[in-house]
Design a protein around this nucleic acid. Structure first.
Lengths: 219, 219
DNA sequence: CAAATATTTTAGATTTGTCTAAAAATTAAT
DNA sequence: ATTAATTTTTAGACAAATCTAAAATATTTG
């Protein structure tokens, strides 16, 4: 079975809205996809007919097992392409969303498995979101960029946004590696630099740029 | 200005049909795109309205300068993606056409320039077809795979289909490099192996696989 | 050069995904 | 528990890209 770009976009939108726990409504989907509730209703019927959605009119809807599977493959494609764009084609993590939004609809399964292999099976995309594996499994905990982590709490560095020698150089010098445990002492609004502290060491300061390429999980 | 996938497909089809010198007809396009002449006429009118085509009803048509430019950017995208698929994702040169057919419609210009840079500005795709540069310029002479070159004529090796160490190993052993001049002595149908001869040397035999990754131009 | 043949175009219909405006159902409020 | 407000759905229309069947134009041929 294969699906149109529009169908895939609806499935993905519903998937993301469902993640936030609360009940998803026709209007929610309309807002997210910048369309009208009437258009959403039309599409819900089509998605139901294709068994992607459980839907009773006037009584809400949610993804079927099939719909969930499809959503995960689309999310997988999106995040793998984002990873490729940032790590291989030197895009910034904030420039890649729209391009990945198009690339995620390329249909070849083999393509995406080869890409995954080429990228050495990354587990998180450049925004820190987990990448589902071939079977749709993914880590539950979202990584966050260090720059977005809350002040005062201990965090563990679990990924870096690039493998460039320049970055590794800097990290070596600052004594930061995957697994390092640190906390944010203070954030400076002037230049968005951040003062951090490693266990039993005096605090020191890192740039906004660096704070954007370090991903951490709460410790 | 941006164009639909369908418009781009028509422009590309007309471009390729024009390359063969002869006049392009409505029916030609219909055959190539697996559609009906009536549908082609409809689209011709739209393309004319967008200044991509010079068209007088009942009297034929051809790409405008703008149409030609557009065609070249699409061809550029197609061939760069094919190169990527073969050289980076380990696809065979005969598996990539359909995937590239989808990828060529991704809209970001920056993406394609970054890809070109990442691939180190390749000049020929895996089928030996030249890749237009950013300005639409490309080599005129098509390379052909050695396996398709005619017996008895001298040819110059001008590209190889992959950069794998396995291939370079084999080529080193057989004393073949870019620039080597050789001719086909005989083709064997049983295993599609090919007997070739380098200048002033005894002939020797190479496999079909190798003959598929060597690109030559008439010498 | 006119009749026969082939090609191209028009006319009108269909599908997909969207819209607006109005009707139906649900939810909230008095 | 009715009424009022909100949300969802239906009805009918539209644009894009396609189709079939018929009409218009070109081309070929005797």
């Amino acid at each position: 079975m294969s699906y149109t770009v529009s169908e895939e976009n609806y499935i993905k939108a519903i998937f993301h809205l469902q993640q936030h726990g609360n009940m998803v409504t026709t209007t929610d989907v309309a807002v997210r996809l910048q369309t009208r509730p009437a258009s959403v209703t039309d599409m819900l019927k089509k998605l139901k007919a294709k068994d992607l959605l459980l839907y009773e009119r006037y009584h809400g809807f949610k993804l079927s097992t099939l719909g969930n599977q499809l959503a995960l493959t689309i999310v997988r494609k999106h995040r793998l392409w984002e990873y490729f764009l940032v790590n291989n084609l030197r895009f910034g993590w904030n420039e890649v969303h729209d391009i990945a939004e198009e690339l995620e609809h390329i249909t070849s399964d083999l393509l995406i498995e080869r890409l995954d292999e080429y990228l050495l099976h990354p587990r998180f995309d450049p925004h820190g979101d987990p990448i589902p594996d071939v079977n749709g499994k993914m880590e539950k905990v979202k990584q966050v960029m260090l720059s977005e982590f809350e002040t005062g709490c201990w965090a563990k560095v679990c990924a870096v946004g690039s493998q460039s020698s320049e970055l590794l150089d800097l990290l070596g010098h600052k004594n930061i590696a995957i697994g390092t445990i640190l906390k944010i002492v203070q954030k400076f609004h002037f230049d968005h630099s951040i003062e951090i502290q490693l266990r039993d060491q005096p605090p020191f300061s890192i740039s906004q740029q660096l704070a954007h390429t370090l991903f951490v999980k709460p410790q």
